[in-house]
Amino acid sequence: MPIKYKIDVIAALKEAGYNTTRIRKEKIMGEAMLQKIRSGQMVSWATLETICGLLNCQPGDLLEYVREAPDNR
């Protein structure tokens, strides 16, 4: 996938005081979204908005476009 996370989002959330237990307990986001972030998968726009709000950042601070090499078959 050409869109990738620039940073370790889970680590950044922990640094900001939001460990995964707190995130689940306060229902900030569900386990499915946390698992997607851990595995490098993209999350919904709503989840991205939540993360940006918690980290006080812009989506561009979290994501980057990485051009994939063309498939030479």
Score class of each variant (00 low, 15 high):
E68S: 11
I51K: 10
R67W: 13
L63H: 07
A69N: 11
M29Q: 03
Y65V: 04
Y5K: 01
Y65D: 01
V66D: 05
G17V: 10
M33H: 11
C57E: 08
K4I: 07
L48C: 05
Y5G: 05
C57F: 08
R73E: 15
G53D: 12
K25W: 02
I7E: 03
T47A: 12
L54G: 13
E68I: 02
A11L: 05
T21P: 05
I10G: 02
A32I: 06
M42Y: 10
I23W: 06
M29H: 07
I37A: 00
I3T: 08
A32V: 12
R73D: 15
W45A: 15
E15Q: 10
G53Y: 04
G30H: 06
Q35D: 08
K6H: 03
D8P: 13
P70H: 04
M1Y: 07
R38N: 12
L13E: 05
Q41N: 13
Q41T: 09
G30P: 01
V66Y: 00
A16L: 01
K14N: 14
N72W: 15
L54S: 11
I7S: 03
M29E: 04
R22P: 03
A69V: 10
C52T: 01
T50S: 00
E15P: 05
V66G: 02
A46E: 15
N72M: 15
N56F: 07
R24K: 15
L34R: 00
D71M: 13
K4H: 13
A16Y: 08
I51V: 15
Y65I: 01
N72K: 15
A46F: 13
I10F: 06
Y18F: 14
D71H: 13
I37G: 00
L54V: 13
E31G: 15
D71S: 14
G60L: 08
E68Q: 11
D61W: 05
Q35V: 10
I28S: 05
I3D: 02
R22T: 11
I28H: 00
R38D: 09
Q35S: 14
E49C: 14
V43S: 02
N56H: 14
E26L: 12
I3G: 04
I3L: 09
Y65S: 01
E26F: 07
S39F: 13
A16N: 04
T21W: 11
Q58T: 03
K27T: 07
L62M: 09
I37W: 00
N72Y: 15
A16H: 03
D61L: 07
L62Y: 05
L48I: 09
L62I: 08
G30D: 09
L63K: 01
C57H: 07
Y65E: 04
N19D: 12
C52W: 00
L13V: 04
L62R: 06
Y5P: 02
M42D: 06
E31M: 14
Y18R: 09
L63W: 08
R73N: 15
L34Q: 00
C52K: 00
L34N: 03
E15D: 07
D71R: 13
S39V: 10
E68T: 06
Q58D: 02
I7V: 10
G30A: 09
P70W: 06
A11N: 03
Q41D: 11
I28G: 07
Y65H: 06
